[in-house]
Design a protein around this nucleic acid. Structure first.
Lengths: 222, 222
DNA sequence: TAGATTGTTAATCGATTAACAATC
DNA sequence: TAGATTGTTAATCGATTAACAATC
């Protein structure tokens, strides 16, 4: 009964296809084949078609896909055609940078507020946004129907702040603290853990003796 | 012959286990079983043991693992026991935040320089680091033996800057621009694409009609 | 010794890829 | 029509999980 309908990999690849289509559309290209999408996104053509097939039939046999049309369909699937109000919690280095970043709206995410508990920061402006006290969050969440929060608080505060934000009804969290948060199953959590990215990268650096070594020293039987 | 020795998933989970062990060690716990590591990291105990088994035997049957010892072994596997000199390219909002962030060194990564092409920014200080012109990069890379670069440049410049950095001998790149870069196979690339995280999250938001829908409308045969 | 827990093998599960009939 | 390319089924591949002998 608990059958995973769509592999998560398919969803993240959809985002890649969206990027490809955006570039092609900007170039004025009108048609595209799964082969071409795949080569841009770094996956096989059959993977592209399979991923799309989870959601419907968007192409025409022999003809390929219409660039603008497919792009719109993928936006609909991801739910990013309309702007989503999004908040940032924590106005430190990273939170401030995110609040000032203007590029999210091109993808359907509008930063509508930023919060901090440090009263020394509250009241300061980041671009056009004023840093608000965390207590002001509940009213804003319900008024603006905020579903997504970016968590850029210190790791020691992350779990506590996450609990608070979830209690206000936020349904999706991107956590930037290098800690493993626990959240209810109906809340979606994604971790953007830069330390982990770096550690993973480090593993694959040339010279790592653990890389490529046979798993269990295939011994000649003695 | 081209057999993937270690699944990438195992490497990223190793980072999670490292976090768990760091917490346990801080608490003063000396022994730990795969069961406990797994429950903290959100994976099965057999997954933990399997992941570790790619690299050696680190536990004692009946006894579990020594917390400090296993932590050290994982650090060695990932290659994060020593500090790695790391550079930031692009001193915009995000790059500046990363350069000021002091938390990386706890994970083995020391930001040693930050670069920008904008001469208006060059010369300014971010914490103790002065923003340098991109032309100064080659000497620094060879002198400091930099292997890792964080790329926080506009998407239009990302590929070009990546090519340049790679030409100087950098072997690992974390790209923050929402574009798909192409790099030689001996260079390791990881993408931290916040727009993609948000899009993926958005897909799983309640109310998405494409979520959980049967793949191909199981029709009663007519 | 009896109980616990590892390391590893074998079974299961799920995702990717290849192949091909459908059809533009 | 012949050529192209989809959507989908079946085959392959790889990763996760269960099971268990080894052993502390």
């Amino acid at each position: 009964m608990k059958k995973r309908q769509v592999p998560e990999g398919a969803v993240t690849r959809l985002c890649d296809y969206l990027r490809v289509l955006t570039v092609l559309e900007r170039r004025g290209q009108e048609k595209v084949a799964s082969e071409e999408i795949g080569s841009w996104a770094g996956v096989k053509a059959s993977q592209v078609r399979k991923d799309l097939s989870y959601f419907g039939e968007f192409g025409r046999r022999g003809m390929g896909y219409e660039v603008a049309g497919l792009r719109g369909h993928i936006q609909d699937i991801l739910g990013v055609r309309r702007q989503r109000p999004t908040i940032v919690i924590g106005a430190g280095n990273l939170g401030s940078a995110l609040a000032r970043y203007t590029g999210f709206s091109a993808h359907g995410f509008q930063i509508v507020a930023i919060y901090d508990t440090d009263l020394g920061r509250v009241g300061q402006y980041l671009g056009s946004l004023m840093i608000e006290p965390l207590q002001a969050l509940p009213t804003a969440v319900s008024r603006l129907k905020v579903e997504i929060a970016l968590l850029t608080v210190p790791e020691t505060a992350a779990q506590q702040v996450a609990d608070f934000v979830i209690a206000q009804g936020v349904k999706a969290i991107v956590n930037f603290a290098p800690v493993l948060l626990s959240v209810p199953s109906d809340v979606n959590l994604r971790n953007v853990d830069l330390a982990r990215e770096l550690e993973t990268l480090c593993f694959y650096l040339p010279g790592n003796e653990f890389l490529d070594l046979p798993p269990a020293a295939p011994d000649t039987e003695s």
